[in-house]
Amino acid sequence: MHYSSSGMPTSLEDSGQQWDFPNAWAPLQHLAIMGLYEARNIHHAAEELSFELAKKWIRTNWKGYQELEAMFEKV
């Protein structure tokens, strides 16, 4: 799985478009994190990866909020 320091990007293409790399979309983060968490009984690494993605996503949003005192649609 390819992900940036802020979570899982919506696209791997860096075209400059709104949702392309390195931007990430919150609903996609939620879907991927919860899907991996629910797959924990299928493969033990899924739960660990879900927590890793969640931590990266939360840290990125918290850091952005601390620096800019604002939340954004994409990170």
Rank of each mutant, 00 (worst) to 15 (best):
residue 1 M to V: 05
residue 2 H to Q: 15
residue 2 H to A: 11
residue 3 Y to W: 09
residue 3 Y to G: 08
residue 3 Y to V: 04
residue 4 S to W: 04
residue 5 S to L: 14
residue 5 S to I: 13
residue 5 S to P: 13
residue 6 S to H: 04
residue 6 S to N: 01
residue 8 M to E: 14
residue 9 P to I: 13
residue 11 S to M: 14
residue 11 S to I: 06
residue 12 L to N: 08
residue 12 L to W: 01
residue 12 L to A: 04
residue 13 E to F: 08
residue 13 E to Y: 10
residue 14 D to A: 15
residue 15 S to I: 11
residue 15 S to C: 00
residue 15 S to E: 08
residue 18 Q to I: 02
residue 18 Q to C: 09
residue 18 Q to P: 11
residue 18 Q to N: 13
residue 19 W to M: 13
residue 19 W to Q: 05
residue 20 D to M: 02
residue 21 F to N: 15
residue 21 F to H: 14
residue 21 F to W: 11
residue 23 N to M: 15
residue 25 W to N: 00
residue 27 P to N: 12
residue 27 P to Y: 09
residue 28 L to T: 01
residue 28 L to R: 01
residue 29 Q to Y: 08
residue 31 L to I: 11
residue 31 L to H: 10
residue 32 A to I: 08
residue 33 I to C: 00
residue 33 I to W: 00
residue 36 L to N: 00
residue 36 L to M: 11
residue 37 Y to T: 01
residue 37 Y to L: 01
residue 38 E to K: 13
residue 38 E to G: 03
residue 38 E to L: 06
residue 39 A to H: 05
residue 39 A to Y: 09
residue 40 R to S: 02
residue 40 R to M: 03
residue 41 N to M: 08
residue 44 H to D: 15
residue 45 A to K: 01
residue 46 A to I: 07
residue 46 A to P: 09
residue 46 A to R: 07
residue 48 E to D: 07
residue 48 E to F: 13
residue 49 L to C: 10
residue 49 L to P: 06
residue 50 S to C: 00
residue 50 S to P: 02
residue 50 S to T: 03
residue 50 S to A: 12
residue 50 S to K: 01
residue 51 F to V: 06
residue 51 F to E: 02
residue 51 F to K: 09
residue 51 F to H: 09
residue 52 E to F: 13
residue 52 E to Y: 07
residue 54 A to H: 14
residue 54 A to K: 02
residue 55 K to C: 01
residue 55 K to N: 11
residue 57 W to H: 01
residue 57 W to N: 14
residue 57 W to S: 10
residue 58 I to D: 08
residue 58 I to E: 13
residue 58 I to Y: 12
residue 59 R to A: 09
residue 61 N to I: 00
residue 61 N to P: 02
residue 62 W to D: 15
residue 62 W to F: 08
residue 63 K to S: 11
residue 64 G to H: 08
residue 64 G to S: 10
residue 65 Y to C: 03
residue 66 Q to V: 09
residue 66 Q to F: 06
residue 67 E to D: 03
residue 69 E to P: 05
residue 70 A to Y: 07
residue 72 F to K: 01
residue 74 K to Y: 03
